[in-house]
Amino acid sequence: MLITTISHVAAFKGVDTPTRRALFAERDRIDTAFRSVYGHPALFFEHGVGAQRALTADLHCTHAHHNALPVPFGAAALDGVVERLCVSGLSPMLMTGDEAQDWYTTAAADDYYYVGDLSRHYRIDYAAAPPRRLFRRVLAGLLELTAPDAVTWETCSTPPWTDPRTAHLGAIVRQPPKGSIWGGA
């Protein structure tokens, strides 16, 4: 599931305080929905686009969005993601919730990655363009998905929305809270 705003925001890093607070509140809501439908907590990640690349044509998405996935391993999933990122030569930096909020207050000059759950937050800062589909590859490996569409799920032959639980999840999250800045699921 993607969490995004209705009005255009290039990256969540550097947004105004109400939008940032709403993002973290929406993550709480999505985590609750995932737990009720799938029995698993949510794992969140964002490939944030820095100001220097926000206007270039090589980007596949210049609208801020947090990816939310229900992950069957709970906290161990985040541990596995961080471990695989380290093996890939990256250096995820652990942040507390307050540190994550502070980090998000500063606009991104360069691209960045965020990965976390409701209690732990990791950031990866980049001076250059990061590898594309990094989290897809990491998650596919962690979940032992070997099918070709495990990483390029846009071409998936069995779309995830055919899972009957998806309709139930949609019913739960379809209507954002009144006065929300979100465009829904």
Rank of each mutant, 00 (worst) to 15 (best):
A140M: 10
I124Q: 04
R136V: 07
R123D: 01
P41R: 13
R174F: 12
W182G: 01
P18W: 05
T56V: 12
C86I: 05
T5M: 13
T155Y: 14
D111C: 15
F44A: 01
Y126P: 00
P160G: 06
A100Y: 14
D58K: 04
S36P: 03
I30N: 03
Q101H: 11
H60F: 13
G80H: 07
P177C: 09
I172F: 08
P176E: 05
H63F: 13
P164D: 06
G179Q: 08
I172W: 11
G170D: 09
Y113G: 01
V71H: 05
D125L: 13
R174Q: 13
A129P: 03
A76M: 13
F24C: 01
L143I: 00
H8R: 06
T4K: 13
V82C: 12
S36F: 08
V82T: 02
Y122W: 11
D149T: 04
E46Q: 07
E83G: 10
T62R: 15
E46W: 10
S36V: 03
A51F: 09
T19G: 07
R84F: 04
P177F: 04
G184V: 05
P177Y: 07
L59S: 04
A100M: 15
A22K: 01
I172M: 15
R174D: 10
D111R: 04
V71D: 02
R137G: 07
R29N: 02
E26N: 05
G48H: 07
L169M: 04
